[in-house]
């Protein structure tokens, strides 16, 4: 290993990975580092990472990455404990940052979703809402995305090694889209792309593969969803479509939450969604 690295007092940061209500996709992004995984294991102590090893070196931890939303009384207790034993607490992924797809139940009467899914919902113990970690404890940093971007994970760890601030964009996906030379789908094909209101970080992978941004990184720092909705309406989007566009992985993030609700009540289940698309008709 390179001895030149400017690590804090030579000690390797002690890292823990935690899980709340989630699909595990974000932790898997860490295991997905492939070539970099051995380096990662070299520069930090992976003290608690159940997905990788059952060995648990115990706390306290320099960096705690926490995945998933707070949906059960157990989660609520766990986030409190993790906060206590972690110098820095980093929420990773749309669930931990904005409630995740499961926060859709926040908008329905209590019990509606659980009785639709489970034969015996009476055995479940859960909170009325699915909320981000920040709704319960102080979070030092949030990594957006469903799932998180593995390069952003590495950036946070690399930054910690030299005690610098990680470089994480807060501007729109459009700027990454333009930087990679993609011709805008919204302007040239009337795709309902959420790029203008969504936070960068993914590298604009969806528009580059020819489909509009789903908004999985959540709202950008100056998101203006209502103006974008007006554009989509002009292109023929229905209320149902707009409600569904904004209420997905980040439906508990305030700008998206509010925008989805604006169209929910006028949405009728009979209408067609009016997905985008333009053809040359001249």
């Amino acid at each position: 290993m390179d001895m030149d690295r400017t690590s804090t007092e030579g000690a390797r940061p002690r890292v823990a990975i935690w899980k709340l209500a989630s699909c595990d996709g974000c932790q898997l992004s860490l295991l997905d580092l492939e070539d970099e995984l051995l380096t990662l294991a070299d520069v930090v102590d992976l003290a608690h990472f159940t997905e990788m090893s059952r060995t648990d070196l115990g706390g306290p931890y320099d960096l705690s990455f926490i995945e998933g939303s707070v949906t059960t009384p157990r989660d609520e207790v766990l986030v409190g404990e993790v906060r206590q034993i972690s110098r820095r607490l980093i929420a990773i992924g749309a669930c931990a940052v904005a409630g995740g797809i499961q926060s859709l139940r926040n908008y329905a009467p209590p019990g509606e979703y659980s009785s639709a899914v489970y034969a015996h919902p009476e055995y479940l113990s859960y909170l009325d809402t699915s909320m981000p970690v920040s709704a319960y404890v102080k979070v030092d940093l949030e990594l957006h995305g469903c799932p998180v971007d593995r390069y952003q994970l590495m950036e946070v760890i690399s930054a910690e090694l030299v005690s610098r601030k990680p470089v994480l964009p807060a501007f729109s996906v459009c700027q990454e889209c333009k930087a990679r030379g993609t011709v805008c789908l919204l302007v040239s094909k009337k795709e309902q792309c959420l790029g203008p209101v969504t936070r960068a970080g993914c590298g604009a992978i969806c528009p580059a593969s020819g489909r509009g941004c789903y908004g999985c990184f959540g709202p950008q720092e100056a998101a203006n969803p209502s103006s974008l909705s007006m554009r989509f309406i002009a292109d023929g989007a229905s209320s149902l479509r707009l409600w569904h566009l904004f209420h997905t992985f980040n439906s508990a993030a305030p700008p998206f939450s509010k925008e989805g609700l604006r169209y929910r009540d006028s949405a009728s289940s009979h209408e067609v969604e009016g997905v985008g698309g333009a053809s040359c008709d001249s």
Partner: peptide, 30 residues
């Protein structure tokens, strides 16, 4: 400001916009 998305498409496509951000980074290898 009520209409603008602050998305930066305009400055990205403008042939004369020249602003850049410069950052120093390290990686896990040093």
């Amino acid at each position: 400001a009520g209409r603008c998305l602050a998305c930066g498409n305009c400055t990205s496509v403008c042939p004369t916009c020249f602003c850049s951000d410069v950052v120093d980074k390290n990686d896990m290898h040093g």
